[in-house]
């Protein structure tokens, strides 16, 4: 990892990689017109994704009492587990934010470091969740058991899929940072993937509150 040693290599670009800058006075992620468009576009995407979750939440809330005599949330949810999941995700949102922070200061290697930490935290979150799901299924609480469980697995699982996708995406960006350093283009990517990550944290907070806390209330 020789590149890690030299801070001044960071501003070099991969072969033939000349980034055309439209607005040098702006923050780096907004320096190309394309960057500004894509960031706004991604905000808009998050708004639609929010509605997607809103509909899943609506379905879950309507069906949460429809347990058909099967296991209830109170019986299934494990406070230490979902608290750990929450803390991990909150921490990863923080470390992701630090990656953006370092990106603005131009420290490529620190950006990469924080992103790797973020992705690893994400991975452990997914691991915990998968484990939780498997345990439930082994106790007979499968998504075919009752409408409540169908809604539970789908809602929480959709969030989990989002997180998993985010990990893959982040990995791709880490590789690109290695290849190209911080350019207006890679900076935009780092910025956007972190928006996504923070957003998933927002969604999780509601899963934590509405699904888990209200489930054990």
């Amino acid at each position: 990892m020789t590149t890690l040693a030299h801070n001044n290599v960071e501003h070099h670009h991969g072969a033939g990689d000349h980034v055309h800058v439209d607005y040098p006075e702006r923050p780096i992620e907004y320096q190309t017109q394309d960057g500004a468009l894509k960031i706004l576009g991604f905000w808009v995407f998050l708004a639609t994704d929010l509605i997607l979750f809103a509909c899943l939440f609506a379905t879950f809330i309507v069906l949460r009492t429809h347990t058909d005599g099967g296991p209830t949330g109170k019986e299934l949810f494990d406070v230490p587990i979902f608290t750990a999941e929450t803390l991990i995700l909150l921490t990863s949102s923080f470390t992701g934010g630090l990656a953006t922070f370092e990106m603005h200061r131009g420290h490529r290697n620190r950006v990469i470091g924080w992103l790797i930490i973020t992705a690893l935290l994400g991975l452990s979150f997914v691991g915990l969740e998968v484990n939780e799901f498997v345990h439930m299924a082994m106790e007979g609480a499968t998504m075919q058991r009752s409408a409540f469980l169908s809604a539970f697995f789908t809602l929480v699982g959709t969030h989990g899929c989002h997180v998993s996708l985010g990990i893959l995406w982040m990995t791709g960006i880490i590789i690109q940072l290695f290849q190209r350093g911080i350019t207006p283009i890679t900076a935009r990517k780092v910025y956007i993937v972190n928006m996504y990550w923070h957003f998933l944290d927002v969604v999780w907070v509601f899963l934590f509150t509405i699904v888990y806390l209200m489930g054990v209330m």
Binding site: H13, P24, P27, I28, G97, L98, F101, M103, R105, G106
Partner: peptide, 19 residues
């Protein structure tokens, strides 16, 4: 092409407080 360092203080206070 040098990333501009503007807007960012030297310690990420905002993120720490948020966390």
């Amino acid at each position: 092409q040098t990333p501009t360092a503007h807007h960012e203080p030297s310690f990420p206070w905002q993120y720490v407080i948020g966390y």
